[in-house]
Structure formats: C-alpha cells, structure tokens
Simulated scan of single mutants.
Amino acid sequence: MAVLVLTGCASGIGAHMTGVFARRGDAVVATDVDLAALERRAAEGAWGANVRRVKLDVREEADWEAALDLAEREGGGPDVVMNIAGVLKPGWVTDLTAADVDFHLDVNVKGTVLGTRAAAARMIRRGRGGHIVNIGSLASLAPVPGLSLYAASKFAVRGFSLAAAMELARHEIAVSLVMPDAVQTPMLDLQVDHDEAAMTFSGPRPLTVEDVERALVDEVLPKRPLEITLPLGRGVLARAANTAPAASRWLEPILMKKGRKAQERIKRGR
C-alpha cells in the first residue's frame, strides 16, 4: 500500500485519481482549497474509506505541512505527491490585470514549488526515496496565444521540475512532469465561451480523465519518466513549436480557426 497526497481533488483529474488510488487500496490524502467542495465530492461515495481529506491552499506553506503531517500519520508517507491543482483564465495580453498575473503564478508555479519542496524534505528525512508528479501541460512546451499567463506558468513548472529532478535523483526521489493536451474537466468547460481560448480546442478531441489515468498508472508511476506528453501526436507538434517557436506564427491562424469551429460546435450542442 502506497501513501499518496493529491491536490485539486474536488474536481477534474484530482477527483478522478483519488478514486482510482483508493479503489486499488492505497491510502490517499485528498486535498483542495475548497474544503466544502471536497467534502461534497467525498459524500458521493465513490472514494471509499481509504481517503483522508484536508483543506490545502497550495500557496500556503503551513497548509502543505499539515497535509504531509496527515500523510505521515496515515502510513509513514508520503510515498507519492501529485501536484495536480491548477488554474486558467483566458485573456489577451493587453487585457491582463495584476490580479491575473498573481492568480496564475501563485497557484500554478508557487504551489508546485512549495509542494515539491515540502514533499522532498519529508522523503529525504525518511530515507526511502519517493516520487513527485507535477502536472504541466502541452502549454509547457508551445506558446499559446490567448493563454499567455497559463503558458508562462506551465513553462515555469517544466523548468522547475526538470531542475528538481536532477537535484533529487541522488536521494532516489523521482520527479516526473506530465504534459497533457486539453482534458475534459471544468477547466476546459470555462474556456468554451472565450475566443481567446480557441487554440485549446484545435486538437482532434479533448483527453478524458481516463486517458490521464492510464498514463499515470501504466507509465508514470511504474516507470518514473522525467516527462511525458499526452497524446503523442500533439506532443510531437508541441515539441516542434518549442524547438522552432517562430514557426508557430504560421501555424497559429490555422489552429485558431480550427479551434473556433470546435467551440461553435460545442455551443450548438448545449
């Protein structure tokens, strides 16, 4: 039995993976900044008895220490910490506010840094290694017009994760970065009505939380890779854009047009 700490568990990927790990018999500390929403999710009954719940604002060091204290009481953990919580607000560069900057960088970057640091310290003291899984995005690799702050935050998550992985390897602590395309979660739903977010919808289809589950359970946890992209085809495209960012200017109108058509189809289907 592993002891896992997950963030962002009131909805989306975090909620789904809490159930996956609980059903396989792991001890899970499920966290979210919205404790009421977390409790409502737990009350639905899909998580079972192996899940402990605690409020965690990923921007607050004290909240991280409390969650990790709980993991240690539950089973001497944590063995695995997954930084899943994230935020996104579409917006053109000229429309961004200082609050928007703080929102993205504080949650997506500072939250991941604090969680990785706190988890690594516990794992080093325990002396049995461990695994830290950070959820990035294909936006960690490719520029995304209309989502510049989100892309900036996820670029930062990638840089931090790669550096942390090199530092922590000598302690037998793996750091894996998972970079999915758009996933069908509330974060995707909020983008449908925003023209700025058209690029998000330019892929063949959104990933499902089950797609992410398969990647985490079948690839990331057993093999502990440095980083993976989901799906492969879009990952290759994102890496190409990262290698030659100037080429993205030629692709942008094509992908934005495709994304806007997809947004319109979704709106008509409501």
Rank of each mutant, 00 (worst) to 15 (best):
P78M: 07
V175K: 07
S137M: 08
V80I: 12
V133K: 04
S140K: 00
A156D: 02
T97D: 05
V93F: 15
V81L: 11
P143I: 00
V144I: 14
V93S: 13
G115T: 01
T112D: 08
D102Y: 11
A139F: 03
R125P: 15
A169N: 09
D102H: 15
I135S: 10
A169T: 13
L141W: 07
V81I: 09
T116V: 06
A71T: 06
A165D: 05
E74W: 07
I124R: 12
V113D: 00
D57L: 05
K55V: 15
A151E: 00
E172W: 15
L168I: 05
T97C: 08
G146M: 04
G115N: 03
I84Q: 01
L114F: 07
A120I: 04
L162E: 12
R125Q: 13
I135D: 04
A66S: 09
E167Y: 05
T94E: 15
I173D: 00
R125H: 15
A62F: 09
F103C: 12
G159T: 10
E65S: 14
Y150K: 08
Y150C: 08
Y150Q: 06
K55G: 12
V113W: 04
H171M: 05
L88C: 15
A66E: 08
L162G: 13
E172Q: 13
D102F: 08
V157I: 12
L56T: 07
A98W: 15
A142I: 07
R125W: 13
E61F: 12
V58T: 04
S140D: 01
G86D: 05
F155S: 08
R122C: 04
G136E: 06
N108I: 00
A62R: 12
K89E: 15
P143L: 04
M82V: 12
T94H: 13
L88K: 11
D69R: 11
E74D: 11
W64R: 00
V157W: 04
F103Y: 12
S148T: 14
G159H: 10
R126V: 01
A142T: 08
